[in-house]
């Protein structure tokens, strides 16, 4: 099974999700070629060449790929498709926008958001907001798939693989990039990689509760998560949303503050090792899905918790 994996990056650095997807790619087969398409991204290609399990890096460096829009990326992958059986991407916003286009163009099936590789043609993936696990087998020789980063341990390092340059293709009818807004504060932990996540829900809205969450998260070196209701209420950015229609994460410790525990939210944290919850309602469903629970008002509990855990940081 010859695998072509699409790299996630921002033209400067390789996205960590690529390493998780590279590990998943190796479970499917090889050789694994990693496509880095962007503008001025030679440094990313060099970084990518050092990811364990990558046999070759394909570098397409051109203005057409500057913002990794789905239309030119899919066209590029389809043009390379003759040499491959499997087309992979991490299940990121970019990967999820590109791979269905590739699958449609090649008339091959796609497996979305796989969390397990049972065999090169057999995958596990959660459906119905993570309440049911589906085992699915691909019946065609070729297929596309997106892999959930949180489900695969990242690939390590290796001596650099060769980098091959690809000629850019003419851009198909495509959306045009206007601008982007990347709000993550300096020094803040990245949600998908953090060992500890402190998350707030709608219940954190009253009385500046979300500021208390931010302060507490910062003090213990945790990333900030949020429920959809909290994002809808403008308490946190959409990049913080955890759940069925947000991010899936697998931290060692997840501390849910003022989150009721809707299935759509729990869907994103099932792989957390420990889930702790603070909610003022003893009947809140979150207590069914958590390991450790405290019935309390977060406005009162968080300042004391911050003091009690002062100086503590995530285990290295």
């Amino acid at each position: 099974m010859r695998v072509l994996l699409l790299a996630e990056h921002d033209n400067k650095r390789l996205g960590a999700e690529t390493r998780n997807a590279a590990a998943a790619a190796r479970l499917i087969g090889g050789p694994v070629h990693l496509l880095v398409a962007g503008l001025g991204c030679a440094a990313v290609a060099a970084e990518a060449a050092g990811v364990a399990g990558i046999d070759r890096v394909l570098l397409a460096d051109d203005a057409n790929y500057a913002h990794q829009l789905a239309e030119p990326l899919a066209k590029l992958i389809v043009a390379q498709s003759g040499g491959y059986d499997v087309f992979l991407a991490p299940a990121t916003a970019c990967g999820k926008s590109v791979m269905p286009r590739v699958a449609a163009a090649l008339d091959i099936p796609q497996i979305s958001e796989a969390v397990g590789v049972l065999a090169p043609d057999r995958f596990e993936r959660p459906i119905y907001a993570g309440s049911i696990m589906q085992t699915v087998r691909v019946s065609t020789p070729r297929f596309a798939a997106t892999m959930r980063p949180a489900a695969f341990a990242p690939a390590g390092a290796q001596p650099a693989a060769p980098v091959q340059n690809l000629l850019p293709l003419e851009c198909p009818p495509s959306a045009c990039f206007i601008d982007e807004h990347i709000p993550r504060a300096a020094g803040a932990q990245e949600l998908t990689r953090a060992k500890i996540v402190v998350a707030g829900g709608r219940g954190a809205g009253a009385g500046g509760g979300f500021d208390a969450i931010r302060r507490f998260a910062f003090s213990i070196g945790a990333a900030i998560g949020a429920s959809r209701a909290a994002v809808d209420a403008g308490l946190a950015g959409n990049d913080c949303q955890v759940g069925q229609s947000g991010k899936t994460i697998a931290p060692e410790l997840y501390i849910a503050c003022g989150i009721s525990g809707a299935i759509q939210h729990i869907s994103g944290i099932q792989q957390a090792k420990i889930i702790a919850a603070i909610n003022k309602d003893p009947e809140a469903p979150i207590f069914r899905y958590a390991d450790i629970g405290l019935v309390a008002d977060i406005a009162e509990a968080l300042p004391r918790l911050e003091r009690l855990l002062a100086g503590k940081k995530p285990r290295a």
């Binding site: 959660p126 699915v136 019946s139 629970g293």
Partner: peptide, 23 residues
């Protein structure tokens, strides 16, 4: 082009131990 081999329910319940106070 794919075949569903199996479905299984995911047990997402952990049933928290409730602790009495912040400490």
């Amino acid at each position: 082009k794919t075949e569903q081999i199996a479905l299984r329910e995911i047990d997402i319940c952990r049933r928290a131990t409730l602790v009495p106070d912040v400490d």
